[in-house]
């Protein structure tokens, strides 16, 4: 009898915990999804619905006009192509360089190993805003360590600032990727590469044939971070390539352009105060969704690998 009741008690206990957990998780997921839902519902509203106090969440007269306006005035296709090419180039280069460095730090004992690791962490804690101006000047008057003398090259407006910093693992938050890859390689069995070496493979062959295939989960994590942060980047893109349109700049410029266009063609709209905060909010929300959408799709495809692999990365050390 007593045995029965403790068993029942335990089951009740377990049940309570799982109910509490479900409530908590639903609540947290709601908080996370709220801005996305809010943005979507606002982006689908005509401006009248936003004025109407009785309309909440579900637009009364859903419209795609906001998306159309933003699509055209952001020059979405062009901005998307630019952003995509830049993010892809930098993230591939960054992942490649950070993987090499991470491997070097994880598996080689040599004088300066600890120092180089400390340097990588140091690059992380210095805010980019601090060094962006000197970096701009160095690329504006680029003379390769004084080798070119007074004949400086202007690299601003080209992909070179991104390529050079990415290739050397000094781009935005690259210290983090070096850290991730180092931890990942540290967790791989040492016997693997020693066996390959005894079989006659050189260091680089061992790395490319044995270690790299095993590190794909780590590569996915670093790539996703790198791609997402470059995609959303505003600071570097506006500093180094202000002559071209990328998504963040396009998003920022769109409301003004749309406003100007509408005030010229649609006298009624401008006089009746359509071009106010409400209207810009609709435009902004539609634009933000268009900027995030490719990332959401990317995440949808990669999230399974992403979540699984970060567990296996064992960022623990």
């Amino acid at each position: 009898m007593l045995m029965m009741s403790t068993a029942a008690l335990r089951r009740l206990n377990k049940w309570t915990i799982s109910v509490l957990r479900t409530i908590l998780l639903i609540g947290i997921c709601f908080v996370i999804l709220l801005p996305l839902i809010n943005r979507l519902s606002t982006a689908l509203m005509p401006v009248e619905d936003l004025y109407d106090q009785s309309v909440r969440w579900i637009p009364r007269n859903p419209t795609l006009r906001n998306f159309q306006l933003v699509w055209v005035h952001m020059e979405y296709v062009k901005a998307f192509t630019n952003s995509f090419l830049l993010a892809l180039t930098t993230s591939v280069l960054q992942v490649a360089s950070c993987t090499l460095v991470g491997y070097g730090l994880a598996r080689f004992r040599f004088p300066g190993n600890g120092l180089i690791f400390a340097m990588a962490i140091f690059t992380l804690i210095v805010p980019p805003q601090l060094i962006i101006v000197p970096m701009y000047l160095n690329f504006r008057f680029f003379n390769f360590m004084g080798l070119l003398g007074d004949n400086t090259i202007n690299l601003i407006g080209t992909y070179w600032p991104f390529i050079l910093t990415s290739m050397t693992g000094t781009g935005f938050r690259n210290g983090l990727y070096i850290f991730i890859m180092r931890q990942f390689f540290r967790g791989m069995p040492r016997e693997l590469e020693e066996a390959a070496f005894i079989d006659g493979a050189g260091l680089f062959r061992t790395f490319f044939r044995v270690m790299l295939p095993g590190s794909i989960p780590g590569l996915i994590v670093a790539f996703l971070f790198s791609f997402v942060w470059q995609w959303n980047d505003y600071l570097y893109v506006t500093t180094f390539m202000s002559n071209q349109t990328f998504l963040p700049q396009a998003l920022e410029a769109a409301p003004g352009r749309i406003g100007r266009m509408l005030s010229q063609t649609d006298a009624l709209a401008s006089s009746s105060g359509f071009l106010d905060n409400h209207f810009y909010s609709l435009i902004n929300n539609a634009g933000m969704l268009l900027v995030i959408l490719p990332l959401l799709i990317l995440y949808l495809f990669m999230q399974r690998h992403f979540v699984e692999s970060i567990e296996r990365t064992g960022i623990v050390g």
Binding site: V101, R107, F108, F110, V126, T165, T170
Partner: peptide, 20 residues
């Protein structure tokens, strides 16, 4: 392994001094 360590980390060391 000693030389390899330098080779693998060399890109970052160069980048650290030049671009950081």
């Amino acid at each position: 392994k000693k030389i390899g360590g330098f080779l693998f980390t060399l890109p970052f060391v160069i980048g650290f001094f030049l671009f950081f």
